[in-house]
């Protein structure tokens, strides 16, 4: 019975996850004429700099999300139940709107002649160059992906048995020690899945950097340029995607090792 219930999901996964993945691998290892080749994978080496740049921006965004998201998650999980529900709701509401629209609104705010600069000018303050900078990309990422950091941490923290904290306090922990020795270790699985959920999409994004960023392409933009640009090189695009996936998988595997030693709570 259980098997039969799972069948539609299996078929779904096969068609929409496994088959596309196999196609990416197939394209990555073939030339445009269809023969087997390693050339594409070798050529990906030329984009090392852009890989590093994307990972750097992804890492900065992730760290900022963590710094902002962790206390937020803690505050939510410690509030009364109906306050909790409201706060969770407030985190989710922006996600009801398409992220593209939200990014466009950031453009309107940050533009050279945008809302913020016009307010500054009204108060006779110097105009700022905000759009077209790396800071704008990071802002866009943090804004878009912050809920993905808060939610997993919150869901883990809400489950922490309050008696453990009381026990720690009874045994003489001050509040700093409670956080460091009880809350922090118990929330690691949430942190890990939060980091994965923020880092992976921000390192591989392409539209946010295009709209808010200046001239620098991130790795996602380069994949797009290979596939949609004049070269129409699906094979090279697939090879870059494959390498990106492998690198991300390795990073996640390393993170999971850290996560597993701390707790058995499964990741999202």
């Amino acid at each position: 019975m259980r098997k039969r219930v799972a069948t539609p999901y299996m078929i779904w996964m096969l068609i929409f996850i496994i088959v596309p993945l196999v196609m990416v691998v197939y394209f990555a290892f073939t030339s445009s004429s269809g023969g087997f080749t390693f050339d594409n994978i070798i050529k990906v080496k030329e984009y090392t700099g852009q890989f590093l740049q994307s990972f750097k921006i992804g890492a900065i965004s992730t760290v900022i999300c963590l710094i902002l998201g962790y206390p937020m998650a803690a505050i939510i999980s410690r509030s009364r139940e109906h306050v909790q529900r409201t706060l969770v709701m407030l985190c989710m509401i922006p996600m009801w709107m398409n992220f593209l629209l939200r990014t466009y609104s950031w453009m309107t705010l940050l533009e050279n002649n945008g809302i913020i600069n016009n307010i500054l000018e009204y108060f006779h303050l110097p105009r700022l160059q905000m759009i077209n900078t790396e800071g704008a990309i990071i802002l866009g990422m943090v804004y878009n992906f912050l809920p993905f950091m808060i939610m997993p941490i919150y869901s883990v923290m809400a489950k922490i048995d309050y008696r453990l904290i009381e026990a720690a306090q009874d045994l003489g922990c001050n509040s700093f020690a409670v956080v460091r020795r009880v809350i922090l270790p118990l929330s690691v699985p949430g942190v890990i899945s939060g980091i994965t959920m923020v880092f992976v999409p921000s390192a591989s994004t392409f539209i946010i950097s295009k709209l808010l960023g200046g001239g620098d392409m991130m790795i996602g933009d380069i994949i797009e340029a290979q596939i949609q640009g004049g070269a129409n090189n699906l094979n090279l695009g697939a090879a870059i995607s494959l390498v990106l996936m492998v690198v991300v998988l390795i990073t996640m595997a390393i993170m999971n090792i850290f996560g597993d030693t701390e707790s058995e709570v499964s990741l999202i």
Partner: peptide, 10 residues
């Protein structure tokens, strides 16, 4: 041209 363009843009 695509390769050069990417190098311009990075």
């Amino acid at each position: 041209m695509t390769d050069l363009w990417i190098s311009v843009r990075s």
